[in-house]
Each structure stands twice: as structure tokens, then as C-alpha cells.
């Protein structure tokens, strides 16, 4: 952990650890942005206008739900079915909110803004930091970076159509790769390792039998590992 002196607090760019965090957040945002292009293409294909497509990314701002909603509509599903699947996928952001609430400072207005940015990427980046200050930086920079790249990507996709297949560049693996890197430091603590193992197993076991989105929500069961006594290292 880098030392937090008054100088690094006032001049964050003098903090080497923070520079690495920022570089990582922007890289992740860029990968998300390329996926935003795919979303723009998929949404137009599902019958949305350009304005509606951009509004979805600006307002809904949770990629898995967005892809699910336009995917169901494109396959001829009813708006109610599209909404149901997307809502289940969006529910996990509420769970992330519980976890992030104690790590984020600020007024009600600031928390309401933070709520819109509470998604997989921001929660994971913040959780991977070893102190509160870097966790807050990671949350806000990842949130800003993902928000900008995701929405620019969406607009580009809606305007130009499919020019890039993200899978050619392995970008679909960029997300699990990033999550592995963020999880790794946490797993040194036994109770985090247990929670992660339970979460992963629950998700894999339920995937074939439950609607998309449910396995990840059910993986919250892993937090029961925190009920054991405080006998962690």
C-alpha cells in the first residue's frame, strides 16, 4: 500500500498506486466501450430508434440487462418477457449497493449519482483496493470511464452498424480476466475464498436449470460464510 501523505492527497497524480488504478480503470472502460458498439447494433436490430438506443445505455446503464432486453425483443419475445429477464439481471446491482454503501462517502446527491454507477465493474474495482481512499477513487474513475466509453460505443454502434466483432479480439474474455485480477488479492483471506467458491459453484450448478440472471443472484448465498466466527487471518 502506498503511503498517504498530505502531498499525495492534494496531488493524487504523485501516488504511484493510484496511477496504476486509473490506468486499469480506463483500460477496462475501453473494453466495455467496444461492447457498447455491439449493444448499439443489437438494439437497432431489435427495432429501437437511435434515440431509444442511446437512452437505454444512458439511463439503464447495466450491460447484461440491456443485452438481455434487446435480445428477447429481437427474437420476437413480448415486452413483458424482455422486461422480466432484464429486471432479474439488474437486481444484483442492488446487492452491490449494500456492499458499497459503507465504502462510499458523501451527501445524498452524491450517493444518488453513485447508485447509477453501481455495476459489476465499479464494485469489483473498488473491492480490489486495499484501503478506503483508493476504493473510492477506483469506484468513481471506473464509473466515469465505463459510463463514457459505454455510451460513446452505443452511439457509434447505433450509427454505423456492425464493423467490429469483439470476439475476434477475445474481448469477451477481457471481462472474466479483469474480474480474476480483481478477485485475486481478496482470495488471500479465507472467508473471501470460501464466499467466492460457494458463489461460483452455486452459479454453475443453477445455470442449466434457471432463467438467465438467477444463478448470479443466487450466488449471493456465498456471503453466509461471513456468519462463521471471526476466525479469519
Amino acid at each position: 500500500m502506498s503511503e498517504v501523505t498530505p502531498a499525495t492527497r492534494l496531488r493524487p497524480w504523485h501516488d504511484e498506486q493510484l496511477r496504476q488504478v486509473i490506468a486499469a480503470c480506463v483500460t477496462l472502460g475501453f473494453a466495455v466501450g467496444v461492447y457498447g458498439i455491439s449493444f448499439g447494433v443489437a438494439s437497432i436490430g431489435a427495432g429501437a430508434t437511435i434515440a431509444q438506443t442511446c437512452a437505454i445505455s444512458l439511463l439503464v446503464f447495466t450491460g447484461a440487462s440491456q443485452f438481455s432486453a434487446v435480445g428477447v425483443l429481437a427474437n420476437g419475445g413480448s415486452p413483458l418477457a424482455a422486461f422480466g429477464g432484464a429486471a432479474v439481471l439488474a437486481a444484483r446491482n442492488g446487492v452491490y449497493g449494500f456492499a458499497m454503501a459503507s465504502r462510499l462517502d458523501g451527501s445524498l446527491a452524491r450517493r444518488m449519482l453513485a447508485a447509477q454507477l453501481t455495476i459489476d465493474e465499479t464494485t469489483a474495482m473498488a473491492a480490489a483496493q486495499d484501503d478506503r481512499r483508493h476504493a473510492q477513487w477506483a469506484f468513481w474513475i471506473t464509473g466515469a470511464s465505463v459510463y463514457v466509453f459505454w455510451n460513446v460505443g452505443t452511439l457509434v454502434g447505433a450509427l454505423i452498424g456492425s464493423a467490429i466483432d469483439p470476439e475476434t479480439f477475445g474481448l469477451d474474455a477481457a471481462f472474466p480476466a479483469a474480474f480474476v485480477a480483481m478477485l485475486w488479492p481478496l482470495l488471500a483471506e479465507r472467508r473471501h475464498l470460501r464466499a467466492a467458491a460457494v458463489g461460483a459453484v452455486v452459479c454453475l450448478v443453477l445455470t442449466p436449470f434457471t432463467p438467465v440472471g438467477v444463478p448470479i443472484l443466487a450466488a449471493t448465498a456465498g456471503i453466509a460464510m461471513g456468519l462463521r466466527d471471526g476466525g479469519d487471518e
Partner: peptide, 27 residues
Amino acid sequence: DRCLALIPSALIAAITVANTFGNGQAL
């Protein structure tokens, strides 16, 4: 509080395996 602190580990682990092995409802 101890349980809530484990949310990122449990859910990010689930998303990682879902993004690695999942394809809709298939693995």
C-alpha cells in the same frame, strides 16, 4: 456487516465463471 463485505467475492466469482463457461443456459 461481515456478510456484506463478502458480496463482491461471492458475486464477482459467480460472474467470472458465468462469463467463462456460460452461453445462455448452457455451459
